[in-house]
Nucleic acid binder design. Structure first.
Length: 280
DNA sequence: ACATCCACCTGCTCGC
DNA sequence: TGCGAGCAGGTGGATG
């Protein structure tokens, strides 16, 4: 579900509530939410409980709270994860998987209908110019990171024989892009995502990445893309970038550039949307 | 080492 | 109204 603009919107919404706050109580309500934590719920709860949050950060779709001992609580929202600000003592909802009671009179609920998301308390390490928690160690920098070299990344992409869209979705090459924004940036750069990356010029790949940066920033301005209640901000409000989508979810509707109906195709066991006329 | 497939879940919508 | 099929924003482990 949430891609970079959605995760960053959540981080920005969360930060003022958690910065400087002590985690008075941490409760895991469903073990699956801590499946990556070797010591399970007990280790996760014990790790975070009593610590103070001194920062929030993000790389791609990975979001984390920096704790006062230099470790971190990482949250990945998967397809349906949410972080919601609640009053302390608010009863957990049907999909609440973990609860953080803060010392400042707020609580954070991690809700996740489909349970693809997770939380994990770990140490932090250096990775590609940034201090990141262990879960994000192999995640590549995202398109909005300062100092990102678009041309170097274009060269890196060109070394792959996989389809361009597959490369965009590979979080070890460039992170934060998911099915919606991959289709949107491919549409903007007029590239068919099925094209092998090594058959696209570096110049065009660089254009694709710059269009990606533009789309991600525009989506961030709109608070992300909400199709339903699964993606919402920490206060429950929706993002409204869905009104600005040019390709994703628009099968049968006219291309905003040339009027040709947008088509939907199967690709990588999911759906791709593109203009068959101007993307090739 | 790389590339690809599909399992992991829940809930909603659509067609019969 | 019921029921099965198909679909959904993402990984990550197994397989080739």
């Amino acid at each position: 579900m949430p891609e970079l603009p959605e995760v960053e919107s959540v981080r920005r919404g969360l930060e003022p509530y958690v910065l400087g706050a002590r985690l008075d109580d941490v409760q895991v309500l469903r073990d699956r939410a801590v499946r990556r934590q070797a010591g399970g719920a007990a280790q996760f709860e014990g790790w975070a409980r009593g610590r103070t949050v001194v920062g929030t950060d993000r790389r791609g779709k990975f979001l984390w709270l920096v704790l006062d001992d230099g470790s971190a609580v990482t949250v990945h929202l998967g397809m349906s994860g949410q972080l919601r600000i609640e009053h302390p003592g608010t009863a957990p909802g049907r999909h609440t998987r973990a609860v953080f009671e803060l010392g400042n009179g707020h609580a954070v609920h991690f809700n996740d209908q489909r349970t693809f998301g997770w939380v994990w308390a770990t140490e932090m390490v250096d990775s590609a110019g940034k201090r990141v928690p262990v879960p994000a160690r192999d995640i590549a920098p995202d398109l909005l990171e300062p100092g990102l070299d678009v041309v170097a990344l274009a060269h890196r992409m060109r070394r792959s024989r996989s389809a361009v869209k597959r490369v965009l979705l590979n979080q070890n090459v460039v992170s934060g892009i998911g099915n919606i924004y991959a289709d949107e940036m491919l549409w903007a750069a007029r590239v068919d995502g099925k094209t092998p990356a090594d058959e696209v010029s570096v110049r065009r790949l660089a254009k694709l990445l710059r269009e990606g940066q533009r789309v991600l920033l525009a989506a961030l301005d709109a608070g992300g893309t909400s199709f339903d209640s699964l993606y919402v901000h920490v206060n429950g409000e929706s993002g409204y970038f869905d009104r600005s989508l040019n390709a994703y979810g628009r099968a049968g509707q006219p291309c905003a550039r040339c009027g040709t109906p947008i088509v939907r195709e199967q690709f990588m066991n999911r759906s791709s949307y593109l203009c068959p006329r101007c993307q090739r």
